[in-house]
Design a protein around this nucleic acid. Sequence first.
DNA 1: CTTGCAGCTCCAGCGACTGGAGGTTGGATC
DNA 2: GATCCAACCTCCAGTCGCTGGAGCTGCAAG
Lengths: 158, 158
Amino acid sequence: MITPHFMPEFPIGQLSRKTGVSVRTIRYYESIGLLPVARRSGGNQRLYTASHGERLQFIRHCREFGFSLEEIREMVQLGSDQARSCSEIDQIACRRLEEVKRKIVRLRGLQAELERIIAGCQGGQMDSCQILSSLADHRQCLHPEHGGIDEDEHHWRE
Amino acid sequence: MITPHFMPEFPIGQLSRKTGVSVRTIRYYESIGLLPVARRSGGNQRLYTASHGERLQFIRHCREFGFSLEEIREMVQLGSDQARSCSEIDQIACRRLEEVKRKIVRLRGLQAELERIIAGCQGGQMDSCQILSSLADHRQCLHPEHGGIDEDEHHWRE
DNA sequence: CTTGCAGCTCCAGCGACTGGAGGTTGGATC
DNA sequence: GATCCAACCTCCAGTCGCTGGAGCTGCAAG
């Protein structure tokens, strides 16, 4: 791939402003091979072109959808192979959708239970705190949806 | 604090089975000061009592509700101060509830958008993959709930 | 006495960044 | 030309909540 001399290049800060991805994160994406290595100026500064911008927008949008960097890497690779059918991309997206649905169900259980617990709080002293005793005793719980500390919650606190 | 000789003590594996928290995680909680340091046997093995079990159940249940370890630590400390009002606990729980609600809204936007994108897939070749192009271009997105950053100036691909 | 599981400590890694230190470059102004 | 300062560079370490693995010791049963 050739970069014609009239193709405008810009430094990392500008790419950051254009895409809303932080400078640090851009360098990080390069370091893990998600974003192609940028050409450098004489003074060792990265120079980007519009195509970097497009790739980065793609990555950013995927991240907003909750795709992992590994999934994005996979999609980028699949996407560059024009001859292939897009059923693999479809699969990744469907997997992601199922995950999102499961998470919603779980969070709704959580919401109902938290609302119930909070509603029981009369603002009294500690020794009669309903929230604490509800949290201490699982048997009081009406909604089992949030049972099992699994992959969901603890990797997903953004 | 005295541990009467009739108070049954048990090793870490048993505590793990009783509470459903892994041995590794129990040791981890001790190391970060969330679980009180256990008495040791002659052979340097941890010995737990029922009160450790109760504390650990509380922690586990809180984790299932999505509270962070920091929040749990705070609640444990507040809870041990009998004289204090439980409004602080209430605040923590409400904060958590708001977070859960926000997450649900966001995820619902995500779900709708993913469904829309996936529905557009005709299973063709890569060069016409609707999923890829939808993910690449935020302007095609109907649901702004999952956006974090305003995209004013992405003026490439005029 | 041997087997074998349960326990111990310590270090490292996960994902997706972020913080901070400490040095260099580029463009504008004096 | 000198100076200034923001933007850039690299490198290491930390975040959160664990988990994996190495390599050791403790303990009860056969």
